[in-house]
Computed example of a mutant assay.
Amino acid sequence: MREDFKTIPLVKNETQKRFEIEVDGHFAFINYGEFGNQIALVHTEVPEALSGRGVAAVLVEKTLNYLEAQGNSLLPFCPYVFAYIKKHPEWKRIVNPKFKGYDKL
């Protein structure tokens, strides 16, 4: 994780159903759905002003760390999150094995 982003807190915004971080006054977020202890990550969005700075990867990493710490099972429907896990296969450990694309990770 980039050093300059390590101290930025992850917020679970339950009202808007998203995990978010604020960088330079802009919010990057991942929309989620919650089903018991399963969390479906469905869409990642990073404002254009933050593009190319690695914010999306930091957001995903912080979110995955949070989910693991909470004992959640992950359903990575978001294409960015899916690709991140494919690139970092150690995170497959928190993906629900019943997830349709599990064998492609």
Rank of each mutant, 00 (worst) to 15 (best):
C78K: 07
S73G: 13
A83P: 03
E3K: 15
L64I: 04
Y32K: 13
Y84M: 06
K62M: 10
F82M: 09
D24N: 15
K87P: 06
I21R: 06
Y32S: 14
V46S: 03
P9F: 01
H26P: 02
V23R: 10
F27K: 15
A28D: 00
Y66C: 12
F29V: 06
I39E: 00
A49M: 02
N37R: 14
S73H: 09
E68C: 02
A28R: 13
A83W: 00
P97M: 03
E68K: 15
V46G: 03
L59H: 04
V46W: 04
L67T: 04
F82S: 14
V23F: 02
V42S: 10
V11K: 15
E45K: 15
K17L: 12
E20V: 14
V81C: 07
Q38Y: 02
K92L: 01
E45D: 00
I85T: 01
R93G: 08
L64G: 06
G101Y: 14
R2Q: 14
R2A: 10
F19C: 07
L64V: 09
T44S: 06
Y102R: 13
I8N: 04
N13K: 04
P47Q: 04
L75G: 12
K104F: 08
D103Q: 06
D103E: 04
H26I: 10
L64F: 08
P76Y: 00
G71V: 06
I39N: 03
I8L: 10
L41S: 06
G101D: 11
V58E: 14
R18E: 02
Q16Y: 03
N96K: 11
G52W: 03
E34G: 06
N65L: 12
L75A: 11
E20L: 14
Q38E: 10
V95K: 11
F19G: 07
E14N: 05
D4T: 02
K86W: 02
E61F: 07
A83F: 01
I85L: 03
E45H: 15
F82Q: 12
L59P: 02
G54P: 09
L105K: 13
A83M: 11
R2N: 14
K86E: 07
A57L: 03
P9V: 02
F82R: 11
K17P: 11
T63I: 09
E48W: 08
